[in-house]
């Protein structure tokens, strides 16, 4: 077997494993609780199926984030950061958290941590 074939197989293997991992994350059922944490510390734990529509304000070093909870869906409404990636992420899905890197903010479903799935 020549090198090129080995390289193609390795590339295909990385893609397949990642695709399987993606599928696993996306097919996992969403929990009811979401966790909002900053700098590794948990700030809020909210049952979004029961909580009324509300906005949550979080501050970090003078910069502000506003998280919107509406009809059981969560999204970042406002962020004082240069890139606004967290806002573009849209609503919170069970597979990936909403992350605001400059303000160290993470919004995630409770069961989406590695520990949670093992339990």
């Amino acid at each position: 077997m020549n090198r090129r074939k080995v390289f193609i197989i390795i590339t295909a293997a990385i893609m397949l494993v990642s695709a399987a991992w993606c599928a696993y994350l996306m097919l996992r059922p969403a929990g009811e609780n979401i966790i909002i944490s900053q700098d590794g510390k948990e700030l809020y734990r909210i049952d979004i199926t029961r909580t009324p529509d509300r906005n949550i304000e979080v501050e970090y070093e003078g910069r502000k984030n506003i998280i919107e909870i509406k009809d059981g869906e969560v999204r970042m409404q406002h962020a004082d950061c240069p890139d606004h990636i967290c806002i573009e992420t849209g609503r919170l899905r069970p597979d990936t958290p909403i992350v605001c890197l400059p303000n160290r903010l993470v919004i995630e479903y409770e069961n989406s941590t590695v520990d949670g799935t093992a339990r």
């Binding site: 994350l25 700098d39 590794g40 597979d95 990936t96 958290p97 992350v99 993470v106 989406s112 941590t113």
Partner: peptide
């Protein structure tokens, strides 16, 4: 971020 969840972005 001191968060393990971010690894969900990796795949």
């Amino acid at each position: 971020l001191k968060s393990k969840t971010v690894i969900g972005y990796l795949p």
